[in-house]
Design a protein around this nucleic acid. Structure first.
Lengths: 200, 200
DNA sequence: CGTGAAACTTTAGTGACACTAAATTCGGGC
DNA sequence: GCCCGAATTTAGTGTCACTAAAGTTTCACG
């Protein structure tokens, strides 16, 4: 099965129709480089670069790594992305759908639609009522939090961080983490991360 | 050169010492799956999964794609990351280094250190004085902007977006974009993106 | 401790495809 | 039309992506 499945990478195209080869070509042209230059820097032949870009050949991981390096970017820029989804470039304060999270009416979140279908960033504004404490969690990706208002206590991998308005927190989401509103008022946190959110 | 360079992918290890195989194993164990399960779902043999995880064999892109799918994640989770860098989980309002950007004293930014060495997200708080207009730019990654204060006009790929405090903007950074402070006061924007920032 | 089964590793291959060198074609400028 | 740079095509080759099966290790249970 392995070898005859050489094409699934290309078949799983994002909606904009770009596969691995097309993305490499787009990047090369954006940098104004010839195939010969890329081939030289990647230690490959110009013929192979041509075949890669036209989807006729698929590079090994190490060759792809070298091509990405010759193109001044990282490998993940060329690999397949998740399928398209609803999106909106701008979201407006006071006009976002508000959803209740979990149980107990202690947390609400404003859903921010991603700016474009293939976006890897996801964002969410969460309103946390005083006293609310989440359970310990751990997941893929990374969390970036900007505390818009209030006082929160975050625990990440056994370490506690107390945050006030304007502070930020950023950590690897694999690490066990939870949060508590330790203030007297509703806290508002802006979360930006690379974990795919449930889309209402 | 191509084939004899089968190991550069492993040699370019992030600081936590994890290569492709080790990351696959970690993910598999995190999901509580056996090699046999992953092999079945990926259409490969258990022997090959074992060799991949121990770095003895390197999968083709299509096989890696299928393994990632069997592990409920995307390929980019397994590829090499940039080298380590300075980081800090928390940044405090009023305590961040402030830098002047460009010329003319019309823009200052607070540098937010990434939360961990391998983080892919980068963040920055920018203070934009009234009237300041940036030049048109375009780069890798994606931009997520939360306007903390003020009124800004953003132009992305020919389309204009006027934002007020609390609004967000999110777009593919490849698209030509620029911004102008159209208000009477300093605007503050929180930028979160996947482009690597200059690190002071 | 012994046993058996599950989980993983090792071995001994095979053949397809990752990649090459060189020939040919294409496109643009003069 | 000629020339040259850029890209594509052709005709391979041999390495490694991947297999099946045997062997080893680990783990749970009595």
């Amino acid at each position: 099965m392995g070898k005859s499945a050489a094409w699934p990478v290309e078949l799983e195209l994002p909606e904009d129709g770009k596969g691995l080869g097309a993305r490499i070509r787009a990047r090369r042209k954006a940098l104004g480089k010839t195939m010969q230059q890329v081939a030289d820097e990647a230690g490959l032949t110009i013929g192979f670069i041509s075949q890669i870009e036209r989807g006729i050949s698929t590079p090994s991981l190490s060759s792809l790594y070298n091509v990405a390096k010759a193109l001044d970017c990282s490998v993940d820029m060329f690999v397949a992305q998740p399928p398209g989804r609803r999106h909106s470039v701008v979201t407006r304060a006071g006009k976002r759908p508000l959803f209740e999270a979990g149980t107990g009416n202690t947390r609400f979140y404003e859903f921010l639609e991603p700016g474009f279908a293939e976006a890897r960033l996801n964002a969410c504004l969460t309103h946390v009522l005083p006293g609310h404490a989440s359970e310990m969690m751990s997941h893929d990706g990374e969390d970036f939090i900007y505390l818009v208002a209030g006082h929160m206590l975050y625990e990440v991998d056994g370490t506690s961080y107390e945050l006030g308005a304007g502070d930020t927190l950023h950590f690897d989401s694999h690490k066990p983490h939870r949060r508590t509103n330790i203030g007297a008022e509703t806290a508002i946190e802006l979360w930006v991360g690379t974990m795919q959110l449930f889309q209402p």
